[in-house]
Protein backbone atom coordinates (compact mmCIF):
# COMPACT_ATOMS: atom_id res chain seq x y z
CA UNK A 1 0.00 0.00 0.00
CA UNK A 2 2.60 2.50 -1.03
CA UNK A 3 5.00 1.78 1.75
CA UNK A 4 7.73 0.62 -0.57
CA UNK A 5 10.32 3.15 -1.63
CA UNK A 6 10.27 4.46 -5.17
CA UNK A 7 11.08 1.77 -7.64
CA UNK A 8 14.52 1.65 -9.18
CA UNK A 9 16.44 2.80 -6.12
CA UNK A 10 17.61 0.69 -3.24
CA UNK A 11 15.98 1.98 -0.02
CA UNK A 12 18.29 3.86 2.35
CA UNK A 13 16.09 3.19 5.32
CA UNK A 14 13.98 0.11 5.99
CA UNK A 15 11.97 -0.25 9.19
CA UNK A 16 9.87 -3.34 9.83
CA UNK A 17 7.30 -3.97 12.56
CA UNK A 18 8.35 -1.12 14.83
CA UNK A 19 6.68 -1.25 18.22
CA UNK A 20 7.33 0.88 21.25
CA UNK A 21 5.59 0.54 24.58
CA UNK A 22 5.94 2.78 27.61
CA UNK A 23 4.66 0.71 30.50
CA UNK A 24 1.14 -0.33 29.56
CA UNK A 25 0.87 2.42 26.93
CA UNK A 26 1.66 1.52 23.32
CA UNK A 27 2.97 4.64 21.59
CA UNK A 28 3.84 2.91 18.32
CA UNK A 29 1.98 -0.26 17.40
CA UNK A 30 3.69 -1.81 14.38
CA UNK A 31 5.03 0.63 11.80
CA UNK A 32 6.73 -0.32 8.49
CA UNK A 33 8.60 2.31 6.49
CA UNK A 34 10.89 2.48 3.49
CA UNK A 35 12.80 5.55 2.39
CA UNK A 36 14.81 5.99 -0.82
CA UNK A 37 17.59 8.42 -1.67
CA UNK A 38 16.29 11.69 -3.08
CA UNK A 39 12.92 11.32 -1.44
CA UNK A 40 11.08 13.63 0.97
CA UNK A 41 8.83 11.48 3.10
CA UNK A 42 6.21 12.88 5.46
CA UNK A 43 4.90 11.41 8.68
CA UNK A 44 1.56 13.10 9.33
CA UNK A 45 -0.61 12.87 12.38
CA UNK A 46 -1.96 14.58 15.47
CA UNK A 47 0.10 15.07 18.61
CA UNK A 48 0.24 11.74 20.37
CA UNK A 49 -0.14 9.72 17.17
CA UNK A 50 3.37 8.32 17.61
CA UNK A 51 5.36 10.45 15.16
CA UNK A 52 8.10 11.59 17.51
CA UNK A 53 8.45 8.16 19.10
CA UNK A 54 8.85 6.66 15.62
CA UNK A 55 11.46 9.21 14.57
CA UNK A 56 13.43 8.70 17.78
CA UNK A 57 13.52 4.96 17.19
CA UNK A 58 14.65 5.46 13.60
CA UNK A 59 17.47 7.72 14.84
CA UNK A 60 18.64 5.17 17.35
CA UNK A 61 17.97 7.42 20.35
CA UNK A 62 15.14 5.22 21.60
CA UNK A 63 15.28 1.44 21.54
CA UNK A 64 12.21 -0.19 19.97
CA UNK A 65 10.25 -2.74 21.98
CA UNK A 66 10.12 -4.81 18.80
CA UNK A 67 11.04 -4.47 15.15
CA UNK A 68 14.08 -3.89 12.98
CA UNK A 69 15.65 -0.80 11.42
CA UNK A 70 18.35 -0.85 8.75
CA UNK A 71 19.80 2.51 7.73
CA UNK A 72 22.30 2.62 4.87
CA UNK A 73 23.20 -0.99 5.62
CA UNK A 74 23.60 -0.50 9.36
CA UNK A 75 21.39 -2.18 11.95
CA UNK A 76 20.24 0.83 13.95
CA UNK A 77 18.85 -1.23 16.82
CA UNK A 78 22.13 -3.08 17.41
CA UNK A 79 24.59 -0.36 16.42
CA UNK A 80 22.92 2.98 17.11
CA UNK A 81 26.22 4.82 17.41
CA UNK A 82 27.50 3.66 14.06
CA UNK A 83 24.19 4.72 12.51
CA UNK A 84 24.44 8.14 14.10
CA UNK A 85 27.33 9.10 11.79
CA UNK A 86 25.12 8.53 8.73
CA UNK A 87 22.00 10.29 9.88
CA UNK A 88 21.10 13.82 10.84
CA UNK A 89 18.36 14.70 13.33
CA UNK A 90 16.75 18.03 14.13
CA UNK A 91 14.52 17.73 17.18
CA UNK A 92 11.18 19.46 17.60
CA UNK A 93 12.45 21.67 20.37
CA UNK A 94 15.32 24.00 19.55
CA UNK A 95 18.31 22.23 21.06
CA UNK A 96 21.21 24.45 20.08
CA UNK A 97 22.86 27.00 22.35
CA UNK A 98 20.98 30.29 22.40
CA UNK A 99 23.89 32.30 23.73
CA UNK A 100 26.32 31.11 21.04
CA UNK A 101 26.22 32.74 17.61
CA UNK A 102 25.00 30.89 14.54
CA UNK A 103 28.61 30.40 13.40
CA UNK A 104 29.76 29.19 16.81
CA UNK A 105 26.91 26.70 17.04
CA UNK A 106 27.75 25.25 13.65
CA UNK A 107 31.48 25.17 14.47
CA UNK A 108 30.68 23.30 17.64
CA UNK A 109 28.51 20.72 15.88
CA UNK A 110 31.06 20.25 13.10
CA UNK A 111 33.61 19.54 15.83
CA UNK A 112 31.28 17.07 17.53
CA UNK A 113 31.03 15.17 14.24
CA UNK A 114 34.82 14.99 14.09
CA UNK A 115 35.48 17.67 11.49
CA UNK A 116 38.73 19.57 12.04
CA UNK A 117 40.64 22.55 10.70
CA UNK A 118 40.06 23.59 7.11
CA UNK A 119 37.48 20.86 6.52
CA UNK A 120 35.44 22.16 9.42
CA UNK A 121 35.62 25.77 8.27
CA UNK A 122 34.67 24.82 4.73
CA UNK A 123 31.69 22.77 5.89
CA UNK A 124 30.41 25.50 8.20
CA UNK A 125 30.77 28.03 5.36
CA UNK A 126 28.83 25.68 3.07
CA UNK A 127 26.04 25.28 5.61
CA UNK A 128 25.77 29.03 6.19
CA UNK A 129 25.48 29.64 2.46
CA UNK A 130 23.24 26.70 1.62
CA UNK A 131 20.72 27.53 4.32
CA UNK A 132 20.75 31.27 3.81
CA UNK A 133 22.23 31.87 7.22
CA UNK A 134 25.39 33.71 6.11
CA UNK A 135 24.03 37.19 7.02
CA UNK A 136 23.21 35.86 10.48
CA UNK A 137 26.52 34.14 11.22
CA UNK A 138 27.39 36.54 14.04
CA UNK A 139 23.92 36.63 15.62
CA UNK A 140 23.28 34.72 18.86
CA UNK A 141 20.97 31.82 18.06
CA UNK A 142 18.41 32.95 20.64
CA UNK A 143 17.86 36.17 18.67
CA UNK A 144 17.03 34.49 15.35
CA UNK A 145 13.46 34.66 14.07
CA UNK A 146 11.66 31.31 14.56
CA UNK A 147 11.99 30.33 10.90
CA UNK A 148 15.72 30.90 10.89
CA UNK A 149 16.10 28.99 14.12
CA UNK A 150 14.65 25.96 12.31
CA UNK A 151 17.10 26.49 9.51
CA UNK A 152 19.97 26.59 11.98
CA UNK A 153 18.80 23.32 13.53
CA UNK A 154 18.64 21.89 10.02
CA UNK A 155 22.13 23.24 9.21
CA UNK A 156 23.56 21.57 12.32
CA UNK A 157 21.92 18.30 11.27
CA UNK A 158 23.43 18.26 7.75
CA UNK A 159 27.02 19.36 8.53
CA UNK A 160 28.36 15.82 8.39
CA UNK A 161 26.66 15.02 5.05
CA UNK A 162 24.21 12.46 6.44
CA UNK A 163 22.58 10.01 4.02
CA UNK A 164 19.29 10.15 5.89
CA UNK A 165 17.83 13.26 7.53
CA UNK A 166 15.13 13.25 10.21
CA UNK A 167 13.23 16.46 10.98
CA UNK A 168 10.64 16.59 13.74
CA UNK A 169 8.03 19.31 13.12
CA UNK A 170 10.45 21.59 11.25
CA UNK A 171 7.77 24.06 10.15
CA UNK A 172 5.61 24.44 13.23
CA UNK A 173 4.95 28.05 14.15
CA UNK A 174 6.82 29.74 11.28
CA UNK A 175 5.37 32.20 8.77
CA UNK A 176 4.27 31.03 5.26
CA UNK A 177 7.44 32.23 3.56
CA UNK A 178 9.75 30.57 6.08
CA UNK A 179 7.74 27.37 5.69
CA UNK A 180 7.96 27.50 1.90
CA UNK A 181 11.72 28.18 1.98
CA UNK A 182 12.25 25.31 4.38
CA UNK A 183 10.51 22.87 2.05
CA UNK A 184 12.52 24.19 -0.89
CA UNK A 185 15.68 23.54 1.11
CA UNK A 186 14.54 20.01 1.74
CA UNK A 187 13.96 19.53 -2.00
CA UNK A 188 17.50 20.71 -2.65
CA UNK A 189 19.03 18.41 -0.06
CA UNK A 190 16.98 15.53 -1.46
CA UNK A 191 18.11 16.48 -4.93
CA UNK A 192 21.69 16.00 -3.73
CA UNK A 193 20.85 12.43 -2.78
CA UNK A 194 19.66 12.54 0.83
CA UNK A 195 16.59 10.69 2.05
CA UNK A 196 14.50 12.98 4.23
CA UNK A 197 11.82 12.12 6.75
CA UNK A 198 9.70 14.99 8.08
CA UNK A 199 6.96 14.90 10.70
CA UNK A 200 4.17 17.44 10.80
CA UNK A 201 0.75 17.83 12.32
CA UNK A 202 -0.29 20.34 9.65
CA UNK A 203 -2.44 18.36 7.26
CA UNK A 204 -1.95 21.02 4.55
CA UNK A 205 1.74 20.16 4.40
CA UNK A 206 1.04 16.69 3.06
CA UNK A 207 1.13 18.07 -0.48
CA UNK A 208 4.78 19.05 -0.05
CA UNK A 209 5.89 15.43 0.41
CA UNK A 210 6.85 12.96 -2.31
CA UNK A 211 5.26 10.22 -0.25
CA UNK A 212 3.74 10.19 3.16
CA UNK A 213 2.27 8.04 5.87
CA UNK A 214 -0.73 9.07 7.95
CA UNK A 215 -0.36 8.04 11.56
CA UNK A 216 -3.18 7.61 14.04
CA UNK A 217 -2.91 6.12 17.51
CA UNK A 218 0.47 4.55 16.92
CA UNK A 219 -0.35 3.02 13.53
CA UNK A 220 0.12 3.99 9.90
CA UNK A 221 -3.45 4.08 8.57
CA UNK A 222 -2.42 4.86 4.99
CA UNK A 223 0.68 5.64 3.00
CA UNK A 224 1.53 6.69 -0.54
CA UNK A 225 1.97 9.68 -2.83
CA UNK A 226 -0.29 12.65 -1.97
CA UNK A 227 -2.46 12.25 -5.08
CA UNK A 228 -2.91 8.52 -4.47
CA UNK A 229 -4.11 9.23 -0.97
CA UNK A 230 -6.48 11.93 -2.13
CA UNK A 231 -7.99 9.44 -4.51
CA UNK A 232 -9.13 7.44 -1.51
CA UNK A 233 -11.68 10.04 -0.53
CA UNK A 234 -15.01 8.82 -2.03
CA UNK A 235 -15.69 10.90 -5.14
CA UNK A 236 -18.20 13.70 -4.75
CA UNK A 237 -18.15 13.89 -0.96
CA UNK A 238 -16.34 17.22 -0.97
CA UNK A 239 -18.20 19.99 -2.76
CA UNK A 240 -17.67 23.66 -3.37
CA UNK A 241 -20.23 26.39 -3.84
CA UNK A 242 -19.73 28.00 -7.23
CA UNK A 243 -21.36 31.37 -7.81
CA UNK A 244 -22.76 33.82 -5.32
CA UNK A 245 -24.88 32.40 -2.54
CA UNK A 246 -26.98 34.58 -0.26
CA UNK A 247 -26.05 35.22 3.39
CA UNK A 248 -28.09 32.34 4.80
CA UNK A 249 -26.79 29.61 2.53
CA UNK A 250 -24.10 28.47 4.96
CA UNK A 251 -26.55 27.99 7.80
CA UNK A 252 -29.07 26.23 5.52
CA UNK A 253 -26.44 23.78 4.31
CA UNK A 254 -24.98 23.17 7.74
CA UNK A 255 -28.41 22.26 9.08
CA UNK A 256 -28.78 19.34 6.60
CA UNK A 257 -28.21 15.85 8.00
CA UNK A 258 -26.01 14.73 5.10
CA UNK A 259 -23.63 17.68 5.61
CA UNK A 260 -20.74 17.24 8.05
CA UNK A 261 -19.61 20.84 7.88
CA UNK A 262 -19.49 23.97 5.77
CA UNK A 263 -16.33 26.02 5.92
CA UNK A 264 -15.01 28.96 3.95
CA UNK A 265 -11.94 28.06 1.93
CA UNK A 266 -10.12 30.38 -0.46
CA UNK A 267 -13.15 32.57 -0.95
CA UNK A 268 -15.67 29.78 -1.46
CA UNK A 269 -17.79 27.67 0.80
CA UNK A 270 -16.59 24.11 1.02
CA UNK A 271 -19.19 21.51 1.88
CA UNK A 272 -18.09 18.23 3.36
CA UNK A 273 -20.62 15.44 3.31
CA UNK A 274 -20.96 13.12 6.24
CA UNK A 275 -19.12 9.80 5.79
CA UNK A 276 -21.54 7.28 4.40
CA UNK A 277 -23.76 9.87 2.69
CA UNK A 278 -24.65 9.07 -0.94
CA UNK A 279 -22.95 11.87 -2.94
CA UNK A 280 -25.39 11.93 -5.87
CA UNK A 281 -28.49 11.95 -3.68
CA UNK A 282 -26.98 14.57 -1.39
CA UNK A 283 -26.10 16.87 -4.27
CA UNK A 284 -29.61 16.60 -5.65
CA UNK A 285 -31.09 17.33 -2.23
CA UNK A 286 -28.83 20.30 -1.59
CA UNK A 287 -29.08 21.91 -5.02
CA UNK A 288 -32.36 23.80 -4.34
CA UNK A 289 -30.90 25.24 -1.13
CA UNK A 290 -28.10 27.02 -2.95
CA UNK A 291 -29.69 28.03 -6.25
CA UNK A 292 -28.84 30.02 -8.30
CA UNK A 293 -25.33 29.02 -7.18
CA UNK A 294 -24.18 25.45 -7.83
CA UNK A 295 -22.43 22.79 -5.81
CA UNK A 296 -19.53 21.26 -7.75
CA UNK A 297 -17.15 18.47 -6.73
CA UNK A 298 -13.91 19.83 -5.28
CA UNK A 299 -10.43 18.44 -4.79
CA UNK A 300 -10.30 17.00 -1.27
CA UNK A 301 -7.64 18.26 1.12
CA UNK A 302 -5.76 16.14 3.60
CA UNK A 303 -8.23 16.74 6.38
CA UNK A 304 -10.76 15.06 4.13
CA UNK A 305 -8.33 12.24 3.41
CA UNK A 306 -7.75 11.70 7.10
CA UNK A 307 -11.43 11.76 7.96
CA UNK A 308 -12.29 9.42 5.06
CA UNK A 309 -9.64 6.95 6.16
CA UNK A 310 -10.87 7.02 9.74
CA UNK A 311 -14.41 6.56 8.48
CA UNK A 312 -13.27 3.51 6.54
CA UNK A 313 -11.97 2.16 9.85
CA UNK A 314 -15.34 2.89 11.44
CA UNK A 315 -14.00 5.61 13.73
CA UNK A 316 -15.55 8.69 12.21
CA UNK A 317 -19.14 7.61 12.68
CA UNK A 318 -19.29 8.80 16.28
Amino acid sequence: MGLEARSGTAPLLVARGLVRRFGSFTAVAGVDLELAAGEVFGLLGANGAGKTTTIRMLCGTLAPTAGSIVLDGIDVVRRPRAARARLGYAAQRFSLYGDLTVGENLGLYAGLYGLRGAARRARVRWALEALGLAPWAGTPAARLPPGHRRRLALAAAVLHRPRVLFLDEPTSGVDPLARQRLWELLYRLAGEGAAILVTTHHMEEALFCDRLALMHEGRVIAAGAPDDLRARVPAGTVLELEGAGDGGVRARLAARPEVAEVVPRAGRLRVRLRPGADPAAARAALAPLVAPARLVPAEPDFEDVFVALLAARGEAAA
Binding site: G45, A46, E261, V263, F306, V307
Partner: peptide
Protein backbone atom coordinates in the same frame (compact mmCIF):
# COMPACT_ATOMS: atom_id res chain seq x y z
CA UNK B 1 -2.69 22.87 17.84
CA UNK B 2 -1.74 19.30 17.03
CA UNK B 3 -5.16 17.70 17.41
CA UNK B 4 -6.50 15.33 14.77
CA UNK B 5 -8.79 16.60 11.97
CA UNK B 6 -11.90 15.00 13.41
CA UNK B 7 -11.40 16.67 16.77
CA UNK B 8 -10.64 19.93 15.02
CA UNK B 9 -13.90 19.81 13.10
CA UNK B 10 -15.85 18.96 16.20
CA UNK B 11 -14.17 21.81 18.02
CA UNK B 12 -15.03 24.36 15.37
CA UNK B 13 -18.61 23.17 15.30
CA UNK B 14 -18.71 23.86 19.06
CA UNK B 15 -17.25 27.32 18.58
CA UNK B 16 -19.93 28.05 16.02
Amino acid sequence: MGVDPLSRRAFWALLE
